[in-house]
């Protein structure tokens, strides 16, 4: 899929520019893209994956928003990890994430008002997106800031390419468009099914099928 290759090449650029990337650290970025994908394997962040994928434009904005929130939250929590009392860590995490999301929401309202209206509550729901909380709990609380940053980059890209793939299929077959521009000609009769939320579920199911058939992972 084209979207996938774009992101993979982006990530190569990062690798070349950063001498700080050891083999182990590179894995932090590449693993979540495929073998340890947050959506298809860790089953995190499904809500927004299904709800925002109706058109590519909104989906890309959502992916960027999650990228920003996850990377910054990972770094902040990781930097504070030794000062956060264990008992109240969830609240601390929620406050950090909620503040970052408020920033994203304000930026979207200022520069992409139409899109922010269309995403409606789903920008706010990044707060409870399990990817963010899951990575903070599982990784940032126990690792150094630089590793956490890489982990955030990897996981948010892993999340991003899946939702962009779903949106690609849904927008192409649902309305014959990509990024709002007509791609399929007049001969194509729009398939309303792909515009419904139900289609998102089924497409995601099929993506999971393909990825797992490739990796040989099975669940019992």
């Amino acid at each position: 899929m084209s979207t996938e290759t774009i992101e993979k090449s982006e990530e190569k650029v990062v690798k070349a520019a950063e001498p700080l990337l050891s083999k182990k650290r590179r894995k932090l970025v590449t693993n979540p893209l495929d073998d340890d994908n947050p959506i298809t394997l860790q089953v995190l962040g499904i809500c927004s994956a299904l709800a925002v994928t109706i058109a590519l434009k909104g989906t890309v904005i959502m992916a960027i928003a999650v990228f920003f929130v996850l990377v910054s939250a990972n770094v902040i929590i990781s930097a504070l990890r030794n000062t956060i009392p264990n008992r109240i860590r969830i609240i601390v995490q929620l406050v950090v994430v909620a503040s970052l999301v408020a920033v994203v929401d304000q930026v979207l309202k200022a520069y992409a008002f139409e899109q922010s209206k269309q995403l409606s509550v789903f920008v706010g729901l990044i707060i409870t997106n399990c990817i963010v909380m899951g990575r903070l709990e599982a990784f940032a609380l126990g690792n150094k800031p630089w590793d956490s940053l890489l982990d955030g980059v990897g996981n948010s890209l892993g999340y991003g390419w899946i939702i962009i793939a779903i949106a690609f299929v849904r927008e192409l077959f649902g309305s014959g468009k990509l990024f709002g521009a007509q791609v399929l000609g007049d001969w194509y009769l729009n398939n309303g099914f792909f515009a419904t939320p139900a289609a998102a579920c089924i497409i995601l199911g099929i993506i999971i099928w393909i990825l797992r058939a490739r990796s040989g992972y099975t669940e019992e």
């Binding site: 419904t196 139900a198 579920c201 089924i202 099928w209 797992r212 992972y217 019992e220």
Partner: peptide, 22 residues
């Protein structure tokens, strides 16, 4: 089918249920 077990088939079921609820 093996790779579809667990999460995959669950998503397809949820999709069909959502279709029904529509």
């Amino acid at each position: 089918p093996k790779p579809l077990r667990g999460l995959g088939i669950t998503f397809i079921i949820v999709g069909l249920m959502a279709f029904g609820f529509m």
